[in-house]
Design a binder for these strands. Structure first.
Lengths: 198, 198
DNA sequence: CATTTAACTGAACAATTGTTCATTTGAAAA
DNA sequence: TTTTCAAATGAACAATTGTTCAGTTAAATG
């Protein structure tokens, strides 16, 4: 056997990425072998090298497109109005974008140390760009004198950690509906930056 | 050569644990070999098996004693007074205990998936015990009518995520002194649960 | 139809893995 | 000093690793 019936690069490439993502999320990058990924795709290990020069690049591509997609989605979102409204928008955007992408988010946070220094620097810069979105909102709120924030950078990191932590426990089948959880987090964030609740 | 000059189990055991912890924090459990750990200790790989039956148990022991030490330290802390004061105490305790233990905290969060199901369940239970400490405070605050919290469980997880996230960015050589950072987090937490700032 | 070529196989590679164990060593006990 | 034994060594093991590549197959092209 060689080329499979109906096989296509356009078909196989996303399947390789999906298989890699799922396995890495489950076992960790170092613990997953190219043969495991290949087996999940239904292909031999050698075939993977039609889609990535090596294992490291496969990981980097996953993290890089994750951040790219995040920033693209964020750029398309509404980002205007008073700070309080923008903060609410950011919280809702973050939750709605991240929660359905469990594996991607998990891998993006856990596998940073498995990137080469150059690759790490690239991802880190994209991450900072996203954080800056939130910090800009906090700065605006301070300028408008509606937020009480001692240090916008620290507060940004605290809020993002709070939001990203959701992925560690949220399950669709959980106790509370997502809409309510979203409201709770909007409330937490608003109050954390000193806005009186309504 | 065999037994090294001055070698002792009481000396070597903690060195094995320290080497394992540092290497696992840096590269991840699956990416670290027993030979690397042994080399860092200054010993051959076979000697490690005087201190652990296998690699998995070595990881479990690291996570288990981390949680044990945390719960022991927490149990020794002051846990009385009004909810607002207890909340502040918890925040300060968490920060002061976790921040100086970067590697331990990192490994304890990152390597959970590399535990066998039985080992995972044990660690998970200890973690929940710690979370319950904070949730009890939130419940007390609600009972005292000084906290405004829609759901104590969600709020607990949000606050702990916020706190634990500090380990990802805090550096002793950073921009702000720890004391100030601590104040900022106490403020954030207090306001998040609806206590007016002072 | 025949030809080309993208997509895949399957075997091979050197290196590394966790773990075992007979052997050797040096420190402590007698 | 001699004896004892805990604490190491170092070689060995089968299995697995990432990666390469000559060969094979089926889809696309003409």
């Amino acid at each position: 056997m060689a080329r499979k019936t109906g096989s296509h690069a356009d078909t196989t490439r996303p399947r390789v990425r999906a298989a890699a993502l799922q396995l890495i999320a489950q076992h960790g990058f170092a613990a997953v072998s190219m043969r495991q990924i290949a087996a999940k795709v239904g292909v031999q290990a050698g075939a993977l090298y039609n889609y990535t020069p090596d294992k490291q690049t496969l990981l980097f591509d996953l993290l890089h497109s994750h951040m790219d997609e995040l920033l693209t989605a964020r750029a398309a979102a509404v980002r205007q109005g008073p700070a309080c409204q923008q903060l609410e928008g950011f919280i809702r955007f973050h939750i709605r974008w991240h929660l359905p992408r469990g594996d991607q988010v998990f891998v993006s946070y856990m596998e940073l140390r498995n990137l080469t220094p150059e690759n790490f620097a690239q991802i880190e810069q994209l991450r900072r760009t996203y954080e800056d979105e939130l910090e800009a909102i906090l700065r605006l709120g301070v300028a408008e004198a509606v937020f009480v924030v001692v240090d916008t950078k620290i507060t940004t990191l605290a809020l993002i950690a709070m939001l990203t932590g959701m992925n560690n426990w949220y399950r669709e089948s959980g106790r509370l509906p997502l809409a309510l959880i979203e409201e709770i987090y909007v409330d937490l964030a608003r109050r954390a930056v000193g806005v009186a609740s309504d």
